[in-house]
């Protein structure tokens, strides 16, 4: 029973973090209709910012959220405005040029970080990095639990933004029907880069939250990009609620897979669920939740 509960807790805590990564990607997917294959790399840059602040100025990772999130938001704005939007206007046969551009951006970000920080493994060891508390026999990692709470807070804030503010409504309108939104007077281009900014900011937050319990090197982005799109498809493109379900589902699936099938099956289980959802529940959990 302990084993089951411990697995459940591990899966849930990890799922919370996955959800934040996924929400960022799903927003971008919903509004722009593209897969952002530089998503994990944005997270990696944010982790390096957090690391630098910690290593050179002693700033606590949670405080450095105030720096990393705006910084990556700006980076996201820039990428969308300068690199992705111009491609919309170019006449090309395939719309995938933008996706390819994100691949290129991801490579450049990785290599810039390698150029600056070399490939050395970095980590941020705070006093609370490995602290735990126990409920019964079940161990809860303190930083991961805090991360989970912050993730919930951030998601709530995002919902308020999407539902209550004009800008948020425009984002949702663009995601639902771009042409109609433009006809209604939404400046869709502005919306695209704001969305890209917010999506990047969210994953930046996830990176900063993750670094106290994880480690860092320039190639760390790739695996997270892959996880992010799995989460998005599980949740349904453009659905923030879906991404939460998607994130938690993936977290739980990986954890239970690792415990009951073997750790080598961790990734394959996520992928199989992904393919099944893609085929039998196209549109993901959005179909069920309708949000």
């Amino acid at each position: 029973m302990d084993l089951f509960l411990q697995t459940l807790v591990s899966g849930l805590l990890k799922g919370g973090l996955y959800a934040v990564i996924g929400i960022g990607m799903t927003l971008i997917m919903g509004v722009m209709g593209i897969i952002n294959l530089a998503h994990g790399q944005m997270m990696m840059v944010s982790m390096y910012i957090t690391y630098s602040l910690f290593a050179y100025a002693g700033v606590d990772p949670y405080v450095s959220l105030l720096v990393s999130v705006p910084a990556i938001f700006t980076l996201g704005l820039f990428i969308q405005q300068r690199l992705l939007n111009p491609l919309l206007r170019a006449e090309t046969i395939l719309p995938e040029n933008q996706v390819l551009m994100t691949v290129g951006v991801g490579m450049v970000l990785t290599e810039i970080m390698r150029f600056i920080f070399t490939s050395d493994y970095k980590s941020v060891r705070t006093s609370y990095s490995s602290s735990t508390f126990f409920v019964g026999n079940i161990s809860f990692s303190v930083p991961l639990t805090i991360d989970f709470l912050i993730a919930i807070l951030m998601t709530a804030a995002l919902f308020l933004f999407l539902i209550k503010t004009d800008l948020g409504r425009s984002v949702r309108a663009t995601a639902q029907d771009k042409e109609a939104a433009v006809l209604m007077g939404v400046d869709s281009e502005r919306i695209t880069y704001i969305t890209f900014g917010i999506g990047s900011a969210l994953v930046a937050a996830a990176g900063t939250l993750l670094i106290p319990v994880f480690y860092l090197y320039p190639d760390i982005g790739g695996p997270f990009t892959r996880k992010a799109f799995v989460i998005c498809i599980l949740g349904g493109l453009g659905s923030a609620v879906g991404a939460i379900f998607g994130g938690v589902t993936l977290g739980l699936a990986e954890a239970f897979g690792a415990t009951y099938a073997g750790m080598e099956f961790e990734d394959i289980i996520g992928l199989v669920i992904f393919l099944l959802v893609l085929l039998f529940l196209p549109g993901g959990f959005k179909r069920i939740t309708k949000v």
């Binding site: 997917m29 209709g33 593209i34 897969i35 719309p95 995938e96 996706v99 892959r226 799109f229 799995v230 498809i233 493109l237 080598e264 099956f265 990734d267 394959i268 992928l271 199989v272 992904f274 393919l275 893609l278 085929l279 196209p282």
Partner: peptide
């Protein structure tokens, strides 16, 4: 039956699944 980005993602998943199978 999938279109556009969904098909692209399915091929990506096939790629990853086969890689894991070959590894395991």
């Amino acid at each position: 039956r999938l279109r556009g980005a969904y098909f692209a993602l399915a091929t990506l998943a096939l790629n990853e699944v086969l890689r894991h199978v070959a590894t395991i």
